[in-house]
């Protein structure tokens, strides 16, 4: 068996692979990966699985089962938060991982958060001192995080879209209070959702959001529904623009009537359970429109998972149409 580097605390698989590559004769990571029989690039955390990880997982098998490996050394669980796992039912774990290695979420809307590998400059300094090398942390690649928990500074991106180890001695930027609070709020939602059975998470959330919009099955020919959804889109755009969310996404201002809210059904698109959007979209919608109490209340009711379109009993009040008008005009 190959001698793989000993994982450092919270080290991401990609970083272990990189340090493994460092100890070889190969000049580029790509050639190293290719020789080991894989062609996928490791250009961003969004690349959920690289076949070379399997080799690494195999080398660490004495201590970590494949499942343990996935949750400890990768961010797959962040991404599978809203993933409808029925898509993978009956498949072997190898097949699932193979699928994940080429997996893309629907729609090309860009989430900025996980486009590049990220690091905390302060952690990098400390790691260099303590371990003699910098490395990529699993926690820092988390898609809903902008701030290093330990140092309260903004996470930095690696300059290129290739993997490398973080530079040490880079200056850090202190995170603002609103950044820190947003990270905390999202983490709260994530742990709430994690406690919910995986197959129910998205359905419950979408149900509640539809209740807010007061549309269960959107009918483009119903002018009342179209109007409501347009108001909702306005509100979404406003809330997005005035929040710290802009920083999490690659697009600038969100404007109703413009992509991705250009069609009357732009928002409704996000609310279709069959679609798999980037989890960051769902998190943003949840955080902008729902409260934790509302979500908890919905948990009192059983969800009929055999009919994903069937709503749970109304637990949230729809946004009042007059308020919608007022809010979107303001």
């Amino acid at each position: 068996m190959h001698q793989v580097p000993t994982p450092l605390p919270d080290e991401h698989a990609v970083s272990i692979i990189y340090r493994w590559f460092q100890m070889t004769r190969f000049e580029t990571l790509e050639s190293f990966i290719q020789v080991n029989g894989c062609s996928s690039k490791l250009n961003s955390p969004r690349r959920l699985w690289c076949p070379l990880y399997s080799e690494l997982a195999h080398a660490l098998l004495s201590k970590y089962s494949l499942a343990d490996f996935i949750s400890k050394f990768t961010n797959i669980h962040d991404y599978s938060l809203f993933l409808d796992e029925s898509a993978f039912q009956g498949l072997s774990i190898e097949t699932i991982l193979k699928k994940l290695s080429t997996f893309k979420f629907s729609n090309a809307l860009n989430v900025l958060q996980d486009k590049y590998w990220r690091y905390c400059p302060e952690c990098a300094n400390e790691d260099e001192q303590k371990y003699g090398t910098t490395y990529l942390h699993v926690e820092h690649q988390c898609l809903y995080k902008r701030v290093c928990n330990k140092h309260s500074v903004l996470l930095e991106e690696l300059a290129s879209c290739h993997v490398s180890l973080p530079p040490s001695n880079n200056l850090s930027i202190l995170a603002s209070q609103s950044d820190i609070e947003k990270d905390v709020a999202l983490l709260g939602w994530v742990s709430e959702l994690t406690d919910t059975p995986p197959e129910e998470r998205k359905l419950r959330v979408l149900n509640l959001l539809r209740q807010k919009a007061c549309v269960y099955s959107y009918d483009r020919k119903n002018p009342y529904q179209v109007q409501r959804v347009q108001y909702m889109q306005n509100i979404l755009a406003k809330r997005f623009n005035s929040s710290v969310y802009k920083r999490y996404f690659d697009w600038g201002k969100l404007t109703s009537g413009h992509y991705p809210l250009n069609s009357s059904g732009g928002l409704m698109h996000f609310l279709e359970p069959e679609k798999h959007f980037h989890p960051m979209f769902y998190l943003m919608l949840i955080d902008l429109f729902l409260t934790r109490d509302e979500f908890n209340l919905s948990l009192e009711f059983l969800l009929n998972t055999s009919n994903i379109r069937r709503e749970i009993p109304p637990v949230v009040l729809p946004l009042d149409i007059r308020e919608l008008v007022k809010a979107s005009a303001a």
Partner: peptide, 13 residues
């Protein structure tokens, strides 16, 4: 497990 050993390995490789 020491930092210096990793540094040594890095500078050699």
């Amino acid at each position: 497990l020491d930092a210096d050993t990793r540094r040594l390995a890095n500078s050699i490789s």
